[in-house]
Nucleic acid binder design. Structure first.
Length: 109
DNA sequence: GGTCTGACTAGGT
DNA sequence: AACCTAGCCAGAC
């Protein structure tokens, strides 16, 4: 495959259904680079201008990871709540309930 | 083309 | 449950 890791991640993010969330590590795994979770985070941070549902990407505990940018974090949570995702009092949502379980797919197709 | 940077994570205190 | 640490890796510079 000639496409970059980043391009595959963006494609994956576009597949996350309304009202569901995926973790950085999960996307890294699906994109073919298990362990590249931090790289996924950097992609979301460096490409906020893109028309992608970046707000559906959260950390492995079900929380929002944009420390240092509270406005963005609050926006992300607001967008998710607008899609029906519920957060507990500690700012975590249930991956069991809202986590994305993608159909099996291949990069060939 | 070498370094630096983290919207990460699992594991241990 | 909150906090720390050491690996991790693609992309930015």
């Amino acid at each position: 495959m000639s496409e970059t890791f980043g391009e595959r991640v963006y494609w994956l993010v576009a597949q996350i259904p309304f009202g569901q969330v995926a973790s950085y590590g999960q996307l890294a795994l699906l994109a073919g680079s298990p362990g590249a979770s931090r790289a996924v985070g950097n992609l979301m941070r460096n490409s906020l201008g893109r028309a992608v549902a970046w707000h559906r990407v959260i950390n492995s505990r079900g929380g929002i990871s944009s420390k240092g940018d509270f406005e963005r974090a609050e926006l992300q949570r607001m967008l998710l709540e607008g899609e029906g995702v519920e957060f507990n009092r500690r700012g975590l949502c249930s991956l069991e309930r809202f986590g994305w379980n993608p159909e099996a797919f291949s990069w060939e197709s």
